[in-house]
Design a protein around this nucleic acid. Sequence first.
DNA 1: GATGAATGAGTATTCATTCAT
DNA 2: CATGAATGAATACTCATTCAT
Lengths: 211, 211, 211, 211
Amino acid sequence: MSPRTPHQFELIRDEKRNLIMDVALSLFAGNGYHNTTISQISKQAGISKGLMYNYFTSKEELLSEILNRSEAEILSCFDPNRDGYLTEDEFVHFVEKVFQIIRERISFWRLFYQFLLQKDVRENFILTHIADDNPLIDNDSSALFIKQMLSVLRDYFIRKKERMPSDYDPETDMRMFLYTIEGYGLSIIFSDNTDEKAHASTIAKIIDSYK
Amino acid sequence: MSPRTPHQFELIRDEKRNLIMDVALSLFAGNGYHNTTISQISKQAGISKGLMYNYFTSKEELLSEILNRSEAEILSCFDPNRDGYLTEDEFVHFVEKVFQIIRERISFWRLFYQFLLQKDVRENFILTHIADDNPLIDNDSSALFIKQMLSVLRDYFIRKKERMPSDYDPETDMRMFLYTIEGYGLSIIFSDNTDEKAHASTIAKIIDSYK
Amino acid sequence: MSPRTPHQFELIRDEKRNLIMDVALSLFAGNGYHNTTISQISKQAGISKGLMYNYFTSKEELLSEILNRSEAEILSCFDPNRDGYLTEDEFVHFVEKVFQIIRERISFWRLFYQFLLQKDVRENFILTHIADDNPLIDNDSSALFIKQMLSVLRDYFIRKKERMPSDYDPETDMRMFLYTIEGYGLSIIFSDNTDEKAHASTIAKIIDSYK
Amino acid sequence: MSPRTPHQFELIRDEKRNLIMDVALSLFAGNGYHNTTISQISKQAGISKGLMYNYFTSKEELLSEILNRSEAEILSCFDPNRDGYLTEDEFVHFVEKVFQIIRERISFWRLFYQFLLQKDVRENFILTHIADDNPLIDNDSSALFIKQMLSVLRDYFIRKKERMPSDYDPETDMRMFLYTIEGYGLSIIFSDNTDEKAHASTIAKIIDSYK
DNA sequence: GATGAATGAGTATTCATTCAT
DNA sequence: CATGAATGAATACTCATTCAT
């Protein structure tokens, strides 16, 4: 019956924090953020409403923490120490990884696009992530990461020119590739389809079309 | 002061009904349905809250009417009397039309995808629009319309085979085409970008890639 | 096409006034005063909401007019010029009349008892109709009427003593009679039973028991 | 400060639940259900509006719970284990009990008759409680209870025949008895009279007339 | 840490009443 | 006289957040 060490307490805290975030993400994604109540979350997490506020100061902070955690996890899926050079195999792997992450983290993406539909969120997102002249951008790891990834991809498509007919336009091909990726990604996010075969075949076709 | 004629009343009603729906669509799309209050709508429409309920029995019915109206308008944009045969020019026109409608009715699409993110809506949508064995489907003009459109498109891609190398697979090409369309469509819907040049160039590239 | 005379106008007005009151009484009695809206009344009366306020200044005045009209009609059913002497035949006729009026004006009674259940109405009713020291009472024809009727009845029961055993107590018998009358009256008001035979037989038994 | 035990919570809930129901019953009965607002109830109960909904999901459920609680309490007042045989003393006791309960639960009865005045409630009440061919009736304890009580009473009046003249009709006598009971009961319910002497004397007379 | 009772600002909705025509 | 669009105050109900224990 030795008392728990501070470290053990911290572990328990972290575990519960993650449990709450998991439950909340699932509910936010499935029913909408505004349509989900703190009561639902705490009940499903098996804790009292009051305790929620011991872990998160507000519903909004809970959301924010969920988004941060997911973003960190997603970024960590892609090798952060890459050399900036994409082989054909790595390209294939990259496409597969993208869809794997979309499917594994489908709740996150649903939540993400839910907010991307809101004017104020969109404005803030653009301000923070896209605008080049925004002073915040240098501190923003995810915007930086996206930029690097696009740069690596562009490099890949430029090198692909060598294997293609003379009228091949790498920039156009890359844009088509990105739209196709986004299109199929969103068709996954916006549906509940779980047909494994059709999924594998579609990915194979996308890879085949653009590698 | 003679009293207003029934026709005058009807005019007033129609005008105000549409005003309310316009304002509501804009707010629903911009801030989210659950995040938009009747107060906001009525204030922006310049009317009292009570009057809202003279035109719509509930917030939900208002939403429903907006969706119905938009659906009808969108379907009416595509020639309903087509012969089922798509020439190359008509294919080009079709793609242009699709993106024109997405941009003209961007608020509707934002609202539409907002709901498509909700589990229960998705389930109901699939039940009503997709399942082949659903008895409702024959009565559902929009589901029917989508089916017909896909059929006409498939026909187009099959004919395209004649102009293409022998290993050309129409079914795959059509799927890539649809994902690209959806991908670019969603990138429009999920952003506030209004760069006309980039838009025109992208559409031209999509057409060039798939016509 | 001669223009209507002022008298004709007044007739039309009166007719419409009565129509509105009939409709309102029926709805008030069936669904409750607070549960009935001006819209319902005007719709069922076939006029516009605005016109209602041309005939009655408020919902409350409409109620008040209905109660006054019914009270006047009911009082007029009993011969107001009676000599204060009740023969046995007249007693029988009185009992029959009471139940006839209850059934003919059942909506009114339902409305009446609906309000008698409300504390403030009850207090006001008692104040106005019962208290002997209330200065209003002399001006109140209905309270006066009830007093006279009770006096005539009491007289009847006192005379009845001559036909009864020596231990007969007129006052007690009259009270039992009144409770029985009220009990059966209320059982009519509180039910939708329309069994004519049972009704006739019950009245016959009441008359037989107390005449 | 150790946290409250589940038992303590239960005590708080039960107490407050009953407090709310008491206040609500009093207001519903005094001012009418539709005329009573949640604000009034919560103000008089000394709690916030929101807390009401921690105990009852809606105004209607609050009403329903009040009616259920009262019904249970009233039924429990009459000995449920009786042998079906009513002695003269027990008959006297029964009549006294009836009026005692009417007076102790006068708010409930006012609420009850308030609803019995509404068409739809009446229809439903008849459907559920009276109709012999209604399949629900066997499961309905209150309807069953009333049936048993009437049966026991009928038995009493039939036995009474032995003590009465030969032309005595038990069925008629019982109906007069019931109307008298109902009549005096309603005269209590519909008035605020609290004259103890008159009350006692009336009950004595009713008992004397029918025992 | 942990509970859930309690709060109060906010939301959809209703309806008697007014008013321009 | 007649209409129904328009108002606004009131009502039932919700929910993030606080707090005593």
